[in-house]
């Protein structure tokens, strides 16, 4: 597709965004998770949202999918303000979104086949043989057609995530949200997932949002990156542009350095004073 091949403007993700957030704020108790965040997720591309643990990345996915409401600001998905929708419209919109949870979130009492068939059976009145064909197609695309009789407990972590991916694309959504897809994966299943996310995105014309802190893998497949920390967008741009960034924080994060603007030490009184105090006591 020419759209994907076209060069990026590193300062802006490109026209016609599928998801836009403006002035987004959210806090939990006294803790500010987001403060006045602006985001644009372009259609048909893979956008990654990265940041250190606890930066509210998963919360952002939940805001985009309408599971929680922002305290201020607007989030629009495909032109609809998601937190102002009624339940019926929200559910209608969600049929066009897939979400891959960190744990896979497969239904433990259903087989692999039934898990992938679940959204089809709930939302369509297709005859059994057609559902079977569709499920086998989805399973084939993640390479697990042979595992259809297994129960989720019999799958490895990587396989469970692939089954969950097959389930997420069962209804042919317009967008998929990935929550930490690479966390805790061995190198081989990591490679498989990276390839899958890229191929599915391009073959099905999806819009993908990846939330992750695995810099190398994410930068390898994302078309556009948002770096978040302390409830704000620190930097955004194409991966190559960010890799060349001179900002010390971005450099520390992108190159995974142990010390930098984000200190290795948790805030504490001066070290000698602390030791002397214990000696005095």
């Amino acid at each position: 597709m020419s759209v994907i091949a076209s060069p990026f403007d590193p300062a802006s993700p490109g026209g016609d965004p599928l998801v836009t957030a403006r002035g987004l704020s959210f806090h939990r108790g006294d803790r500010i998770i987001f403060q006045d965040v602006d985001l644009d997720i372009p259609r048909g591309r893979i956008t990654a949202i990265m940041g250190p643990s606890g930066a509210g990345k998963t919360t952002l996915l939940r805001l985009i999918s309408g599971q929680i409401r922002p305290d201020a600001g607007r989030i629009e998905v495909d032109g609809a303000c998601i937190h102002e929708l009624g339940r019926r419209e929200l559910y209608h919109l969600r049929k066009r979104m897939g979400m891959l949870f960190q744990s896979g979130a497969l239904f433990t009492d259903l087989s692999v086949f039934d898990n992938v068939a679940f959204p089809l059976r709930e939302h369509t009145r297709l005859p059994d043989h057609l559902i079977r064909t569709l499920v086998l197609m989805k399973l084939e695309s993640v390479g697990l057609r042979g595992a259809r009789e297994l129960m989720p407990a019999e799958l490895s972590g990587g396989m469970a995530r692939r089954v969950a991916l097959a389930r997420a694309i069962a209804l042919d959504p317009m967008m998929i949200l990935y929550d930490e897809p690479f966390a805790g994966q061995d190198p081989i299943s990591m490679g498989v997932l990276i390839k899958l996310i890229r191929t599915l995105n391009d073959a099905l014309g999806l819009t993908s949002i990846i939330v992750s802190h695995d810099v190398k893998e994410t930068a390898a497949i994302a078309d556009y990156l948002y770096l978040m920390s302390d409830g704000r967008v620190m930097e955004h741009g194409a991966p190559e542009a960010l890799g060349r960034s001179t900002s010390p924080w971005v450099a520390q994060f992108m190159r995974a350095l142990p010390d930098g603007p984000v200190s290795f030490h948790y805030p504490a009184p001066p070290y000698p004073a602390d030791l002397l105090a214990s000696a005095a006591a």
């Binding site: 209608h92 949870f101 960190q102 744990s103 979130a105 239904f107 959204p119 709930e122 969950a164």
Partner: peptide
């Protein structure tokens, strides 16, 4: 509780299925 902890309820909601009904 387990369905909640393993995000099965949340993923059901994301598939536009109401866990109260299902």
């Amino acid at each position: 509780g387990l369905m909640k902890a393993t995000e099965q309820l949340a993923s059901m909601q994301m598939m536009a299925v109401d866990p109260f009904q299902r």
